[in-house]
Design a protein around this nucleic acid. Structure first.
Lengths: 159, 159
DNA sequence: ATTTGTGCAAATCGTTTGCATCTGA
DNA sequence: TCAGATGCAAACGATTTGCACAAAT
């Protein structure tokens, strides 16, 4: 990754958390959502926002998003996908997810919650709230918690 | 990373877990430890094993290990460092740690436990057992837990 | 004598960046 | 008008791989 600067956009944070006008995601709304987050609603950003926030919560990688976006009216270049995802993350519209050193995943659900990662299928999904016990671990002296990442890796039960 | 095959060596696992003759890590022991794990005790592997298991638990990246290994009698090439770490991981001598997309970390402590990651310093360390509540989350139908990764990110408390 | 490991350099993969060109306010 | 976006291709950093050579059994 090599992104020391942008280190502020990972995991959930107590902070901001822009209101996410899910559903009824008309362009108007998405446009405002972007503005509220301090981002200019450009064509490609709207295209991506539509994909990301148009329907329920999503878990995807830059590559996945790129593929989906190719079908839209203003398909962004791969570079723009990366740039945009980073910006969205910086502005709290999506959150990054910690996984093994390969690709970075993005989650449109920004609040605190944990994940299941299905190894065989390379799929990521939320762990239902009710299954998660509160994880109240005291931070060491002089530090404070900036985020908590929990990933439970799963494999299909061997026959 | 691009390592779909070797996907079996991550995180803690209920399985094997070769006995780790910590302390008193004489070459003899290390050599046997490697043999027990099914790996030929070559010079460079011994050099790495010495660094990894010679003293207490360690958390490091390929780069870190490479640097330390340069000082030994048979300094392995960077490629060998990577190959060896992968092998060690596959054979349960070390475990990989899930962090944000940059480098992969390795932990010489293979049993189940979680981590604190100090963002400012790019340092990783264990969370003391007693602070960790058991995380008993039921795996979805047709799957079984293959590993649990918990990382609590910390930042120095802002003055 | 075989099999396995090692080193080097080249190759890959995910991601970032420089720069000339567009676009939204 | 003009700061901010976008696209492209080149640059990058971490990791893997192909192949000729060396070492372990």
């Amino acid at each position: 990754m090599t992104k020391v600067e942008n280190a502020g956009a990972v995991g959930w944070r107590p902070q901001s958390m822009v209101p996410q006008t899910q559903q009824a995601g008309r362009t108007r709304d998405l446009s405002n959502q972007l503005k509220d987050a301090g981002l200019r609603p450009t064509r490609q950003r709207l295209a991506l926002a539509e994909i990301l926030f148009g329907s329920g919560d999503r878990h995807l990688t830059a590559e996945t998003l790129y593929e989906e976006a190719r079908a839209t009216r203003y398909p962004p270049s791969l570079a723009t996908i990366y740039n945009t995802l980073n910006q969205f993350a910086e502005h709290g519209l999506v959150r990054e997810i910690a996984l093994y050193g390969s690709k970075v995943w993005y989650d449109t659900k920004t609040g605190p919650h944990y994940h299941f990662y299905l190894e065989d299928k390379d799929e990521l999904f939320d762990i239902p709230e009710e299954l998660v016990p509160a994880l109240n671990i005291a931070a060491p002296e002089g530090t404070e918690v900036s985020g908590i990442d929990v990933v439970i890796r799963l494999k299909s039960r061997r026959r």
